[in-house]
């Protein structure tokens, strides 16, 4: 009898556990992947600048981002590999598509993907009260303003 009781208890446990595990398997990837939206403007030396929308996706393996203007024209894509701790820029528009500029921006973008890590030299990150993130590269005089775009409540 005790044996059979224990078996039925185990069965009941299994019956509850299997759907729970199934649910978790479906929920976890969604939670592990995060999509953030920002209104962005980047000020560059010489009074130049870029404005637009910035979308950042992060997950356990790294992340990716796209910066495009209000009309949909892309400034650049960036892919972050957590394993290599490196950012690779893709589809970069002309004024930024120079080897040195790409290298600097890639390093700057690393701060956005890995905020917990130590900020690289000559870079600072400030969080304003309104949620705006200001990333400054003092050496090359580049400032990135990223204001979170929150869903409008209807």
């Amino acid at each position: 009898m005790p044996y059979s009781t224990s078996t039925s208890r185990n069965r009941r446990c299994l019956v509850r556990l299997v759907p729970a595990l199934f649910l978790l398997a479906n929920i976890l990837p969604a939670k592990a992947q995060e999509l953030r939206r920002y209104g962005a403007h980047i000020t560059l030396p010489g009074g130049k600048g870029i404005s637009g929308i910035c979308i950042i996706r992060t997950d356990k393996d790294g992340g990716a981002m796209s910066l495009f203007n209000e009309f949909g024209i892309k400034a650049f894509d960036a892919v972050y590999s957590a394993g290599k701790d490196k950012v690779e820029l893709r589809n970069v528009i002309k004024p930024l598509n120079r080897r040195r500029a790409r290298k600097i921006i890639a390093k700057d973008m690393k701060c956005l993907f890995a905020p917990g890590k130590k900020t690289p030299k000559s870079r600072t990150i400030r969080h304003r009260d309104d949620g705006t993130l200001v990333l400054s590269n003092k050496r090359f005089k580049i400032t990135y303003h990223l204001t979170p775009l929150k869903d409008v409540v209807e």
Binding site: G49, I50, N69, P95, D130, T147
Partner: peptide, 23 residues
């Protein structure tokens, strides 16, 4: 150019950016 969200605005001068003007 003025960018506005959440009641906050930023103004940018674009006269020196050729690409911005072109876009």
């Amino acid at each position: 150019v003025m960018l506005g969200s959440q009641g906050k605005t930023d103004v940018i001068q674009v006269n020196s950016s050729k690409t911005f003007k072109q876009i």
